[in-house]
């Protein structure tokens, strides 16, 4: 009879050779790591931290260091030195001041425009639209994200072209389009970054229970008062989250400005035109949007909105 002889074999095997005594390399590593949580964590994070630290933060630090260097005016060669000249120039030369302020203004205008458009759209999608319509709109909003950036900007360039589609559309009303310039730039940037505002606002709207709107109306609020006193405060974190994208992306953009901005100079275009002529100055100017965005994030954090993300 085979069965009775095999059975005791198994039990004796497992007592003589317990699981812990297995000795492959993987087993050894696992056993060592099991007792050392810090080592485990280090193993998990070493690679991504190296990537973040060396390539990402590192390049930013290099940019910042370069901003203190100078350029030989004759040879146009970068000379490593330490000078505050570039920063002084940015802060004191009116053209740079104006460009920085204009860029911040454009980024704010884009953000406000996106927010103003996202509110009614989010309300419609979350509370009014049928599930089918909602899905179609969600696709409609996010679809442009999959199209190439250049394609989108180029299509706006054509739209705003003198005698182009926009002029043609407005002609019956005796109007013409704004042409290339600040207005066209704001509209184009708002189009580009709108999904980043619309998606969080819509999903936040969906999370507001319907009966809060009923309750507000029940207590005597007309629709606009309900939007102002119930919807907007509850959507604030979503607006702030969206604005971080619309604001910082607008602040850093320069291709749209080149395509539809006409003569409008923004920080990005100034950096782009200095990148070969005077890299240290470009680097110094490049720190401006970084500082502004850090300030913006700081304010957003202070508002408490980031806690709810």
């Amino acid at each position: 009879m085979a069965a009775p002889t095999i059975k005791p074999d198994i039990t004796s095997d497992s007592t003589q050779a317990p699981v812990a005594a297995r000795s492959g390399t993987g087993d050894t590593i696992s056993r060592v790591l099991h007792a050392r949580p810090k080592l485990r964590l280090a193993g998990l994070l070493a690679l991504p931290l190296a990537w973040l630290g060396v390539l990402y933060i590192g390049s930013l630090i290099l940019l910042f260091v370069t901003a203190f260097w100078t350029t030989d005016t004759f040879t146009s060669k970068v000379v490593p030195a330490f000078t505050l000249e570039n920063f002084v120039e940015i802060v004191t030369v009116p053209a740079y001041q104006l460009t920085a302020l204009r860029t911040i203004g454009i980024a704010l205008a884009v953000t406000v425009l996106c927010a103003v458009l996202a509110l009614p759209l989010g309300l419609y999608m979350a509370k009014v639209a049928s599930p089918r319509m909602r899905a179609m709109l969600a696709i409609g909003i996010t679809l442009p994200l999959w199209a190439g950036y250049l394609v989108k900007v180029f299509s706006w360039r054509i739209t705003f072209m003198s005698g182009g589609p926009l002029d043609w559309l407005l002609a019956p009303f005796g109007l013409t389009g704004p042409g290339y310039g600040t207005a066209a730039l704001i509209i184009t940037l708002a189009y580009l970054w709108f999904p980043y505002m619309a998606v969080p606002v819509y999903s936040a709207f969906r999370q507001i229970p319907d009966n809060l709107f009923d309750a507000s109306s029940d207590l005597g609020a007309k629709p606009w008062a309900t939007v102002r006193t119930v919807a907007v405060p509850l959507l604030k974190p979503a607006f702030i989250a969206g604005s971080i994208f619309t604001f910082s992306l607008s602040l850093g953009d320069y291709i749209a400005a080149q395509f539809v901005g006409g003569k409008t100079q923004v920080i990005g275009t100034v950096i782009a035109s200095n990148i070969n002529l005077n890299p240290p100055l470009a680097a110094a100017f490049g720190t401006v949007p970084i500082v502004v965005v850090v300030l913006y994030l700081f304010l957003a954090r202070k508002s408490g909105a980031l806690k709810q993300l």
């Binding site: 229970p209 809060l212 309750a215 507000s216 207590l219 007309k222 006193t229 119930v230 405060p233």
Partner: peptide, 27 residues
């Protein structure tokens, strides 16, 4: 609803989460 002299106590209360109790009652 805002033109009718009736008020409602909702099934799941529908209190405004961003307002204090006093602000809710005073809304």
């Amino acid at each position: 609803p805002f033109e009718r002299d009736v008020n409602t106590v909702f099934q799941d209360y529908a209190l405004f989460p961003h307002l204090s109790v006093a602000e809710n009652v005073g809304y």
